[in-house]
């Protein structure tokens, strides 16, 4: 059966998949889009952001962790899922400190782009105004934990793509926070370099470069001119410190 082409229904469209592929992989390979933040095709699956929840029959399943099945009926663009995703996004905004007007990633930020996509106008949850520690100790990379959404992409990228172990998540529940794996806990004491994938795949403005910022005017940035469901999650080279783009 391995390698045999099968198909499932995705909002009424037939999506072909290879055995072992997740719903997410199959949809992305087929040119479709399911909202997501913690998924990255080059990395192992994390399944934490829950934005990729789809409805299969009467069950809600995360598309990135659910294997595609032949004949499966998958619903994605339905109002009940939109409402659930909207709440998740609102919680992410409420528990961080996402001041978009001055953020380097504004216009190229996947969190912001998804908020636009889903029509978010405000958060219904109390804003937490966190004051987590920023880390500017590295020569070229800056960490703002208040913008971190704990997606763990940097953690996995460091281990799986860079062959390093710079980042980890520690703590539980609302205390979960990104930690730096060095003796003094500072980014500047690690072997992270600017060309590392882990420094370039952050979907929000938590990990940014210290130089080369704001290279584009408003209305010229990726998600100023495209909605994320058209382009998929993508971080352009201009916000990756000018290094070659890492495609999703």
């Amino acid at each position: 059966m391995s390698g045999m082409k099968s198909a499932f229904s995705f909002d009424g469209i037939q999506i072909a998949f290879t055995s072992g592929q997740s719903i997410m992989q199959a949809v992305l390979d087929g040119g479709g889009y399911i909202p997501h933040l913690c998924y990255h095709p080059q990395l192992s699956v994390h399944g934490s952001c829950r934005l990729c929840m789809v409805k299969v029959g009467d069950r809600y399943l995360s598309a990135c962790t659910t294997e595609a099945q032949n004949g499966m009926q998958v619903e994605n663009q339905i109002s009940e899922l939109r409402e659930l995703r909207l709440k998740l996004l609102e919680m992410l905004f409420a528990e961080g400190n996402h001041f978009c007007p001055s953020c380097e990633l504004s216009g190229n930020c996947q969190l912001q782009a998804l908020a636009y996509e889903l029509g978010m106008t405000h958060s219904r949850f109390p804003l937490q105004y966190p004051t987590r520690k920023r880390d500017g100790s590295h020569a070229t990379v800056f960490l703002d934990r208040d913008r971190c959404i704990n997606c763990e992409i940097c953690v996995r990228a460091s281990r799986e793509l860079d062959g390093k172990n710079v980042f980890s998540l520690s703590g539980r529940g609302s205390d979960t926070a990104l930690q730096i794996n060095s003796e003094d806990g500072r980014l500047g004491s690690t072997d992270l370099i600017a060309t590392d994938s882990s420094a370039r795949l952050c979907p929000v403005g938590a990990l940014v470069f210290k130089q080369g910022n704001y290279a584009e005017r408003p209305n010229e940035r990726l998600y100023d001119t495209h909605i994320i469901s058209e382009t998929g999650n993508r971080r352009p080279a201009v916000v990756s410190g000018g290094y070659p783009e890492l495609g999703e």
Partner: peptide, 9 residues
């Protein structure tokens, strides 16, 4: 805040 954000802030 990091200094490069100042003109926008």
């Amino acid at each position: 805040h990091p200094y490069w954000e100042l003109p926008l802030l």
